[in-house]
Design a protein around this nucleic acid. Structure first.
Lengths: 122, 122
DNA sequence: TGGCCTCTTGGCCAATCGACCAAGAACTGG
DNA sequence: CCAGTTCTTGGTCGATTGGCCAAGAGGCCA
């Protein structure tokens, strides 16, 4: 693995890591509906405000969100809504992977459809 | 944040976390070219074989790769190639976010194009 | 069988993460 | 100016991560 390749993968990994936390994903979903100040997000997430602030700074450091100070409040918003499409794709990915697992399981007579499987595992 | 929402986000986050490591992303890229046994991947990554094995088990536990034992070797392969498209999308995302940052920077006379910017920061 | 190869697992350790609290910076309104 | 609100930052602490080594399971072949 040469240095250039490693640098590129390191960058990819940093983005992934920034998105790899439920609270951060939650805030991104909330910001999909428009900008929010830190105290609003704190209320929604339910953690300490300092925790939320740090989560936001992680997202900001990766360029995923942008902040704008207005008075005493700081409003955060999504810089590129494509990131939203990106994180939501995981749902599709999961569905496909589940489907593959079903196939691999080699269910006799294929009596268990994917839809039924999904229904049974909420 | 209700329990159902949290569970869904937790799942998304787990996938992200599994992908949030340079070596794991590297192995996924390598597996794009077809199945590989652990020792081949170890050779490519350059870490200890036990480290590589653990990385693979993380990817496997999230259903991203599949393993098949043949003799003394264990061959890993990608379960759904959509995951490849997914991780590669980060490049596009990054490009768009950089572009946004350029706009936000409010460069006078817009003399610095995005392409030039990219060239200057390898 | 015995030695070799391949891989996984457990143990250990340093580094990082994520939570909260406390302190303080910055703005607002009385 | 002072009190109150909003937010960030530093500190601390337990949990998790990621690396290597050592041990052992399991397959292959002389």
């Amino acid at each position: 693995m040469d240095a250039k390749t490693h640098a590129k993968l390191e960058t990819r990994a940093r983005i992934m890591r920034a998105l790899a936390h439920p609270s951060r994903l939650f805030m991104i979903e909330q910001l999909a509906g428009g900008e929010r100040c830190v105290c609003e997000l704190t209320e929604m997430v339910g953690s300490d405000i300092s925790t939320v602030s740090k989560h936001l700074s992680i997202l900001k450091s990766e360029g995923i969100v942008r902040d704008e100070k207005r008075g005493a409040q700081v409003f955060y918003s999504i810089t590129d809504f494509r990131v939203l499409r990106f994180v939501r794709q995981i749902e599709l990915l999961l569905a496909h992977m589940l489907e593959n697992q079903m196939k691999a399981a080699d269910v006799p007579q294929s009596r268990v459809g994917f839809a039924q499987f999904l229904r049974r595992t909420p």
